[in-house]
Design a protein around this nucleic acid. Structure first.
Lengths: 210, 210
DNA sequence: CCTTGATTACACCGACCTGTGTAATTAACA
DNA sequence: TGTTAATTACACAGGTCGGTGTAATCAAGG
């Protein structure tokens, strides 16, 4: 059937298929037999490349650990562009939420899964933080966390609602957060030009609450 | 052993236990035998109260469908207070993310589960929106969505990171979004008092990107 | 006392799961 | 050609799962 098993990429083919099935149908919902059958190989071959399903799961998550590539666009464009690519992915029929969050939800007690998921979340936060630093944002760390919340929030919402406009809402919020982030030169107080950001008057009683 | 089975609340005891186990360990990870054993009843009794595990799952999610109670606190205080109670729940050892998101992640294809999850998410968004309307926020609908993103984002982040300060970050972001939300009286343009919101100068290149 | 209904213990079914053992087959390479 | 390594088909072990069937037990109310 398949003209060339091509030797070396057998492992990659297994990973590709496992990725697709695990992600779309859920990890616990897909057995190793299903993965093997989907490729058209024997279960034995799969176990010749991965010692256990746990190993396959770990490799699947590692493979998903891809950060956005370096870009020459402006930091702000890259940050806001994140939400545009999110919206694109939301529109695809193959979108099923964040694979790391899903994996933790499915296999909560598993220590290794948690480790990979945490590393991924943190690396994206750092990605935001570095771009914010380039923008001379004062609290780059804090804003980066907030942006990460918007990303994961829109992903979770879209998982259940299947409404790609969630990405646009997140982008709008991100813009506000960016526009209201102080720059490092702000530190010595003072200097207040006229209010710029679209509308910037506090809602009557939204000043202090807790 | 148990002095009084009390007849009628057998069903409730089953639900209580199923809730705890499903939520903490995952739905697929907990069998009906486990639920029955945990209560000390026979599997047969469980099936006398619920026709199938699917029915038990549905009842579990329905039971989780609780909205925050009516309050006499100011709308802004209620909105921001949401993130305080989130932080409290994050700190608890029994926190394991959003049961609805987790259920959809685990049982994606299931139509009924999705319906309940969507209804829950939407009802919380509406809760936000009504409070925002009381604050005369112009785009109450949009801001409500953004707040919902922050809630679900902090929940997802906390699920994998186990870091309750995520709630504080979400609250900070929510404050900024609130402070920058226009009121309905803003509509006819004009009227700009001095800039109030903490710091409100746009980051150098964060004005436009896409 | 007797009836009624809930609960129990327990075996059992068929399906699916991860993982292994084994002998035969294939293909590359010397 | 012979050697080696990968892959195949297939059976099987041991476990868990959702769900049912059945006969015995228990408790309450008439």
């Amino acid at each position: 059937m398949t003209p060339l098993p091509a030797k070396q990429d057998m492992k990659e083919r297994i990973l590709e298929t496992a990725d697709r099935l695990f992600y779309l149908r859920g990890i616990r919902a897909v057995g190793v037999d299903t993965v093997a059958a989907e490729i058209g190989i024997s279960k034995r071959t799969l176990y010749n490349h991965f010692p256990s399903k746990d190993a396959l799961i770990a490799a699947y998550l590692q493979r998903r650990f891809k950060m956005p590539p370096l870009s020459d666009k402006s930091p702000a464009a890259q940050i806001l562009g994140t939400f545009d690519s999110l919206e694109r992915r939301f529109g695809s029929a193959n979108f099923r939420g964040c694979p790391f969050v899903n994996a933790v939800a499915e296999l909560g007690e598993d220590r290794g899964v948690r480790r990979i998921a945490v590393a991924f979340k943190e690396s994206r936060r750092i990605w935001f933080r570095d771009l914010l630093t380039q923008l001379d944002v004062a609290d780059a760390d804090g804003i980066a966390t907030q942006l990460a919340l918007l990303v994961d929030g829109s992903i979770a919402q879209n998982l259940v609602r299947d409404d790609p406009t969630m990405a646009r809402a997140a982008k709008a919020a991100a813009r506000v957060l960016l526009a209201n982030a102080g720059t490092t030169e702000d530190q010595p107080t003072k200097r207040d030009r006229s209010t710029r950001g679209a509308r910037a008057r506090p809602t009557t009683s939204a000043r202090k609450s807790h």
